[in-house]
Structure formats: structure tokens, C-alpha cells
Design a binder for these strands. Structure first.
Lengths: 345, 345
DNA sequence: TTGTATGCGTTATCAG
DNA sequence: CTGATAACGCATACAA
């Protein structure tokens, strides 16, 4: 086989064409060109076509600065995240992006890395760009102080609600998430001796989910059979806590793990000790992180916080606010249980 | 304890203050105000202070549209990704963000979802915002067609290089990554009978890494003892391939897995069959995905593509190009091996 | 239907 | 040291 000739890529022109260039090329005035391109007003079909062609030939794109300057609108919103690497900011960003892309709204992205000073700096930068709204995404559901700026531009807090109850926040219902898991174990998996391995205690998500689980169990006349222990969000903690649990001699037929990694560690130890999952012990996780849950040796039943939905809803509420119909207070997106082999045979 | 009074949050003013507002408040002319704020030229200290105070009182932020309109600069670049959820675009984005944040350059983020039509649409939107450069991030290292636009603005391709060899691309050295792993297994872990479980064959990363590994082994007078098989990037494939390998009766003391999930599945099966890792069999992964590798029952030796570094470098090269010193051709960021317990006792 | 004039908020030039 | 004034690219009210 002969080597094909290398493809030739088109020359790229130097300077951006302006509307004046287009007008000149089409032999019309500035305003005529302007109108023709936005097929407004009364313009003769021929001129319109002529202008269009000129614009195309010059590969004209309107200068949005100038447009914004006169219209007062930027069609741009700011998204301020705290950490892009984590498990939570990114899905929210994705959800928001999906909605805003449809709305032809551009996203200016900044990352405050959890530093309030950087947050302020970035907000100033965003405001300079005349953004029409802000979505603040935080990686935990712990309520956060409101953004520190004086302007009255629409703001939506995603995942972490604002401490100001009047602000528009959108987050998940941790208490209900706890209930979901407990109900599933009792009603679907028919468990009665349910143990618990917590995540990090300082997360309100941890205590709220626990509270929900306990409330649900109580309604079934049950309670958690193990000591309530918190640790870290890691597999290692899942393994350690499970070993302790087994050694304690407590009899249990299910374990609520507060995230997927913990569940994964837990299952590993259970299987190592010759216990069958779910026949002998059912295990649940949380977060529904597919890479952890779905393809595991025993796929893990988990609860999703629907962070992408939260991001999308945040974007929709922001768009509403920009259009003059603001929302107030905190909206809760329901969590969702995904049953898998770790609880149901 | 009594409930504390709810915190009071400051009123937010309605309209953005302009420089005229500031000038009026400070009793100076527009141009004086402008100069005073950019502590330029000869301005008396008192006036400067007066203007500053006025600006602060009105919480003035300059309108960057107007600024850009006159300066011709937007201090904004566009980042076009294909998928935010994946493992590769996001770290590159993070790396770029880190650099650009320092450079006081704003990021306009768009997501083409792998669709060329959307990519074109988004590029137009970006160009309207007079971005000064573009970083195109793709989730695979397979070379991609150049971005489809006619303007001559600096562009850097990150992770996936451009098919146009003249473009500025930055990616990782897959062949070398393959060598790294093989060398580690031979020289550090003293293995001689090395098996292989591939990822998805259509990825050049797969074939290039394999090629590198084979070349390195050949230099040690060795070769891969197993059949060369490709599959998917999943744990399940790792388990399946490992079972087959064990059943085939081939004798091996190491397995090169082409990503971390495969390695994880592989190790799971090996341990299940009573083999010790790494004493009986050493296992390597790839991607260095911490959530998979670090906290595993046996932490997994892995190779990082340093995607964050790639993103950072892309940003630096873009900044250079914007400053009039463009780079051309493809730059390779070396991969990096992280030895863990799966290969070294 | 088309063209002229004005203003959006800022910076830069130049005159006072 | 300070203040008019033009210019950036575009949209629009208004005049032709």
C-alpha cells in the first residue's frame, strides 16, 4: 500500500471580520447588515442574501462583547466549584452544562479549591464578565455560607445549600436516603439484624442518613444491632470495621455502609471469611459510583444522590431566576436506590 | 441554650455601578477615575484615594466587555471537552485550570459530547466571546481531526493529538509506558514469565503500550508467555481473562493488565484461587486511578499518564502561543510508574 | 427598504 | 495633574 498524500488543512485568516467588513463587502450600510443577519425588520430578500453570503465568506462571528455592551446581556453564567477531581462537583457540573448548553448560555468556570479568598477573587472576575447568574457547587451537603458579593444577581447553590434560608439551594434528601436503604433491607431483602458502618462523622450526610435509617427501622420495630461507628470514606475502613464487627460476635444479616468504598471493603472481608453475599449478609453502599459498584465481584446495591440531576435542576432554576422568576429556599432532589446483587439474590 | 438570632445578610444592590457612577461620586472626570483606579499616570494621591473609596463604596467592578472592546483582549480561553464524566478529560481540565487561574485567564467551558456538529456550534460560540485560544481535550490518545474553524487563534490539543502534525499537541508516551511496566516487572520484581491482558484493541494506547512492553521484554531476552488478548476496560474482563489464563495451564509469574480495573479483576481471581499477590504472581495496572489502586486489598502498581500535567502543559503552551511564541508539533509527557504492593513484596 | 446617528462602558490620546 | 474626546463593534431609534 502506498502512503496517501498528507491531508491539506485550510489556511486560517488572521483578523476577525467585523460587521463593518461584512457591510462593506455586501455594499450596504452597517445597520442594514445588522438587520439582515438577524433576519429582522423589512429587508429585501436579495440584500439579505448578499449580506449573508458576505458574512459567510468572511466567516464572520459577531463580537459578543459589543453585543453584550449594548444589550446589557452576556448570556453567560458562572459556575464556581471547589474541587473538580472529587466525586460530586463534576457530575453537578455535567448536569448543569447539559441544560445550559441547550439554553445557549455559556459557562464560565472557576475553581475556588475550597479557599474563601480565592472564591472572592474569582467572583470578582466573574462579575467583570457580566455573568447573569452563578451556580455554586460544593462537594459536600454541609450547608455553606452564602457567596460573598454585593450584587443582586441570581445565585443557586447546588449540593451544599446556603446557610441563608432565603437563598435558592438545591440538594439531596439525606434523611430519606437513609430510609430508602433501611426499607430496602427490611422489606425487599428481609433482613432483621442490621449492622452499620459509618463514613466521616462531620458530614451532615453521615448523621442524616443514619437518622433516616434508624427512623425507618424503628417503624419496623427494629434497630441497628452493631455499635454506631464512624471512620473514613475508604475501603480500608470498610475492611477494618467489618473485621471488628465479625470479631465482636454480634450476629447480623446485613450491613449498611455509608459509601460504596466502605461497602466494597466490607464485602471483601465477608467473602474472605467465607460468608456469602447476599445469602448470609446483605451489604449496601452509597453514592452509586458505577466504577465501584457495578462491575464489582458482587455488584453493590447503592443509593445515588442524583448529583447530575441536582446540577441540571440548579441550572434550570437559575435560568428561571434570570428570566425574572426566582426560586427561594431549599429544594430537595430525592435520592434513588439501585438494587444490585449485594442485597438481592 | 437559646436559639441565636438568625444571621442577617447584607442587602444586594440592584444595578452594577459603572465608571461614570464612580467618577460622579468622587467628583472627578471619567478619565481621571479610570486612571486613578489603574494607579497609572500622574494622579494626586488624594484624588486617587477619593476615587478608590468611591469605587469601593459602589462595589464597582469594571465591565470587561467594554474593556475587551477597546483593548481587543478578552483574557479568556475556551476549553472544549468531549466528556466530563470520564477519567481523562477532567484531570486535564483541572491541570489547565490551575495554570490559567494563576495567569488570570478565564475559562469558557464547552462540552461537545463527542459530536462534531456540537463541536462546531460550540466553537462558534467561543469565537463570539473573542477567546484568545482554545484547548481541545479528548478522552483518548487516538489522534483526532483538527478543530473545524477558520480563525487563526492559538490552539492546543491535549491528550489526543491533532492529525495535523503542524498543530500543537500534547499527549503521553504510550510506548514508553509499556516499557516502564515491563522493565519494572523484570528488573525490580524479577519476573520472567509475564502474561498480558489487554484493554480495548481500537485504542492506540492499547497497541502502543503492548508494543513498548514487548520491545522492552525482548531487550531482556523475554517475551509475553500468554496469548495476546484484548477485551474491555472492566473488572469483569479482568476476571474472565484471568480465569482463562489459569485454566490454560500456562505458567506465569506476572500479569500486565492494561488498566487498573482489569488489574483489580485479575487480582481478585488470583486470590480466590489461592495465589498470593505478589509472591506468586505480580500484577500491574494502568492509569493510576487512586480510587481503584491505592486502597485496594492489594494496592496496585500502576502507570499514570499524568493527565493533569498534560492539561497544565497544554495551558502553558497555549499561554505562550497567545504571547506570540507558538509551539508546533506533538509534545510527549512521560508516563510515571507508581510501584505498590501488587508487584513488590 | 435602506441609511444616519447615537449610545453601551472603557481606555487612550491629547489638550488644558 | 486633570478633563474632553475619539474609538472599540454592534444594535436601535429615527430619518430618508
Amino acid at each position: 500500500m502506498e502512503a496517501g498524500a498528507p491531508p491539506v488543512y485550510p489556511e486560517r485568516s488572521k483578523r476577525k471580520a467585523t460587521l463593518s467588513d461584512v457591510a462593506r463587502a455586501a455594499n450596504v450600510s452597517l445597520s442594514t447588515a445588522s438587520k439582515a443577519l438577524r433576519n429582522q425588520e423589512r429587508i429585501s430578500p436579495e440584500t439579505r442574501e448578499r449580506v449573508r453570503k458576505a458574512a459567510k465568506d468572511l466567516s464572520y462571528t459577531p463580537n459578543s462583547f459589543a453585543q453584550s455592551l449594548v444589550s446589557g446581556r452576556s448570556h453567560t453564567i458562572g459556575i464556581i466549584t471547589q474541587d473538580l477531581q472529587g466525586r460530586f462537583c463534576t457530575p453537578a457540573l455535567i448536569g448543569a452544562e447539559r441544560i445550559l448548553g441547550e439554553e445557549k448560555t455559556s459557562i464560565m468556570l472557576v475553581n475556588a479549591h475550597g479557599r474563601p479568598d480565592l472564591e472572592r477573587t474569582h467572583i470578582r472576575a466573574l462579575l467583570s464578565h457580566n455573568i447573569e447568574g452563578i451556580i455554586a457547587i460544593n462537594p459536600e451537603t454541609n450547608p455553606r455560607p452564602p457567596l460573598d458579593f454585593e450584587l443582586n444577581i441570581p445565585t443557586v447553590y447546588a449540593y451544599a445549600p446556603s446557610l441563608n434560608p432565603d437563598d435558592c439551594s438545591i440538594t439531596c434528601d439525606n434523611v430519606d436516603a437513609g430510609r430508602l436503604v433501611a426499607r430496602h433491607l427490611v422489606e425487599d431483602a428481609h433482613r432483621t439484624r442490621i449492622a452499620f458502618i459509618g463514613g466521616v462523622e462531620s458530614f451532615v450526610a453521615s448523621t442524616d442518613r443514619l437518622e433516616g435509617a434508624q427512623a425507618e427501622l424503628a417503624e419496623h420495630g427494629l434497630s441497628i444491632v452493631s455499635p454506631i461507628r464512624f471512620g473514613t470514606w475508604t475501603e480500608a475502613w470498610g475492611r477494618e470495621a467489618t473485621l471488628d464487627l465479625l470479631d465482636s460476635g454480634i450476629s447480623f444479616d446485613a450491613v449498611i455502609c455509608q459509601n460504596d468504598q466502605i461497602a466494597r471493603g466490607c464485602i471483601h472481608v465477608l467473602m474472605q471469611r467465607g460468608l456469602r453475599v447476599p445469602q448470609d449478609v446483605a451489604v449496601t453502599g452509597h453514592d452509586d459510583w458505577d466504577i465501584i459498584c457495578v462491575d464489582a465481584p458482587v455488584p453493590i446495591t447503592s443509593v445515588s444522590n442524583e448529583v447530575e440531576v441536582i446540577g441540571a435542576k440548579a441550572a434550570m432554576m437559575l435560568v428561571d431566576a434570570i428570566n425574572g422568576e426566582p426560586h427561594h429556599g431549599t429544594t430537595y432532589v430525592p435520592c434513588k436506590l439501585y438494587p444490585r446483587a449485594s442485597t438481592i439474590g
